[in-house]
């Protein structure tokens, strides 16, 4: 199966390991990876800040970049959801609405793709440790991907899964919210890290680079001995 990877700008620039793990994992599961090099960013940072006009250029670029794709897979629930929003954003636009719909229809978040398209729940990963999982808001509430990551995690050999208290609560990332309302966001992530610590887990797993950058940044600052991993990295551990 040919899969076009939408790696996301955050992973591209800051978390290359997540991109690499995604490629290796999907290949191991039998996919052939295509990486359209003209992809940049889904436009969410500008769009969510209210700059709809400014964000449309990046959206059109993405629509073109993935026009040829059969499946678009991304290691981010939030960016996948943004693609799903494109048809609403271009509603009534004769040139782009239909194309936006095509892209939205063939886009999948990574764990959703593995469980619901590839129909695999055990990817044969092995990792020793006690892990808790942060449910990202956009992936859970807006995209509706809730069970897939947990099912995959529970099948990782050697990994003990513990549920996070207040797991449905936002970590405080929210894109530009984290700099625009930096102090409020800071209190939110501080509480999140305290909740993670209370689980006794030594690994925090997430499926969105933004949330992980936020939570990981706070864990790093407080010096807690908790390893932060993207779920692609966990599933690629052997």
């Amino acid at each position: 199966m040919k899969v076009s990877l939408f790696v996301t700008c955050l992973v591209d620039m800051f978390q290359g390991n997540v991109g690499k793990a995604t490629v290796e994992l999907l290949e191991r599961l039998g996919c052939e990876i295509d990486f359209p090099t003209s992809q940049v960013c889904c436009g969410q940072p500008a769009y969510n800040s209210g700059y709809v006009v400014e964000s449309k250029g990046s959206m059109k670029n993405m629509i073109k970049a993935f026009e040829h794709a059969e499946y678009v897979v991304t290691p981010s629930g939030s960016c996948a959801y943004m693609f799903k929003e494109y048809p609403h954003i271009f509603k009534g636009d004769p040139e782009w609405e239909q194309k936006a719909q095509c892209l939205a229809d063939k886009t999948f978040e990574l764990t959703d793709f593995i469980v619901n398209v590839l129909k695999i729940e055990n990817v044969g990963a092995r990792l020793k440790g006690k892990a808790t999982y942060h449910t990202s808001c956009h992936m859970t509430r807006l995209l509706g991907v809730k069970d897939a990551p947990i099912r995959l995690l529970k099948n990782v050999e050697g990994l003990e899964y513990v549920e996070l208290l207040g797991k449905e609560r936002c970590c405080g990332f929210g894109g530009t919210f984290s700099v625009k309302m930096g102090n409020i966001s800071g209190e939110m992530v501080d509480e999140k890290v305290r909740n993670i610590e209370e689980t006794g887990a030594d690994i925090l797993v997430g499926a969105d680079a933004g949330c992980l950058m936020n939570i990981g940044g706070r864990i790093s600052r407080t010096g807690k001995p908790i390893r932060v991993m993207h779920i692609a990295e966990v599933l690629n551990s052997r």
Partner: peptide, 9 residues
């Protein structure tokens, strides 16, 4: 504002 409370990669 970000780095007041957390590190940035």
């Amino acid at each position: 504002a970000w780095t007041e409370v957390r590190d940035f990669p």
